[in-house]
Design a protein around this nucleic acid. Structure first.
Lengths: 200, 200
DNA sequence: GTCTATACCCTGATAGAC
DNA sequence: GTCTATCAGGGTATAGAC
């Protein structure tokens, strides 16, 4: 009996497309309701699936969350890398561009903001993820700022480590006020003012 | 028949003491788990009560949350008022003292941080509360900073409104990093560095 | 790979005794 | 004012058919 040729590649592609669609839907839903507030049914519905259909691709809600976060991190790193290249490695300028970009994706900003706050509890599934992420980013920025200080672009009367922490704090804090009152708060303009204060 | 004198005052006091004890327990539990993550059973247990015993004092979880927030706001306003008086109305100095104080009450800082992030969703019970709170505080600070600019204490090349927003953003942002890594982040020292940048 | 059906737990809230 | 008992609803996850 002749077997019809199994469309192996096509099927794998379809699986990958399903996962991507689910991750997109999950990203939006987590952004609106946070991890604890988002229900699997919401995510399934947004992906045109039922709950068991969704759970066929990801064994649990926690697994799904972690995939969403990793995927976002991957995309954002890629964006930042490209912007830095276009900018001749000027971190301050590149970071302003990042804030401007964030202003076009409020859902994602809200996602990270809410998950970040939730994740401070040691028993949150993304607890380690966010601590490691901050440590990694901080190290990255300390290096870049040190170089900018040596180039005379950034004021050298404050340590690079301190400047890195202050910069992240400002980014995070501005996001909160912007999310609460988007028309009132011009996030990128305010961030720019902060960057001016850091210039040499 | 002679009725034994009803201990009216004593009973009222006992009721008030119960409410205060519940609010203390609820504050701690909300701080650790947020509004959505905190269960009424957790709060009841922390207050040495059962769930119905708890619900006898507060008709619903939402009511309890709002009472917790209002109570905290009342206490904090009172503290800030007193500190300002001791400081000759120097807002920058008083705000540094506030950050130092916050460093001694991580649970409360976490409570406001987590509820703030949750409350960005329009359907959160504390949504309006936090928006109004920011508007009120911002107005208050714009007035104070304007005066400090006229006195020559604060740089005048940036508008008071912008400085107020940046200051709140820095406070909020530092709290997040401090909560995540309390030993690594010296919140009040970092805040002090920011305040130095705002000096005339 | 996706569905229907359902098990099973958790949670907020109520009824009513004491 | 606090308890025991209980309900109704919603939530994640599983079983098993197609």
């Amino acid at each position: 009996m002749k077997q019809s040729p199994t469309p192996r590649r096509t099927q794998a592609e379809r699986t990958r497309a399903s996962r991507e669609k689910i991750i997109r839907s999950a990203t939006e839903t987590f952004a609106q309701k946070g991890f604890r507030g988002a229900k699997m049914a919401d995510i399934a519905k947004a992906a045109n699936l039922t709950e068991p259909g969704l759970l066929h691709h990801f064994p649990s809600k926690t697994h799904l969350l972690m995939e969403v976060l990793k995927e976002r991190d991957r995309i954002d790193s890629e964006r930042m890398r490209a912007t830095l290249q276009q900018n001749g490695n000027h971190l301050l300028e590149a970071s302003i561009e990042l804030v401007e970009h964030n202003q076009t994706v409020p859902g994602l900003v809200q996602l990270f903001n809410l998950l970040l706050a939730e994740s401070i509890s040691a028993d949150h599934p993304a607890h380690e993820f966010f601590i490691e992420r901050y440590q990694r980013e901080r190290e990255h920025w300390v290096q870049a700022i040190t170089q900018a200080q040596q180039n005379g672009e950034v004021r050298a009367d404050i340590s690079a480590e301190t400047l890195a922490i202050l910069t992240f704090a400002m980014m995070d804090g501005l996001q909160v006020q912007w999310l609460m009152e988007p028309e009132k708060i011009d996030m990128s303009e305010l961030y720019r003012v902060m960057m001016e204060m850091l210039r040499a």
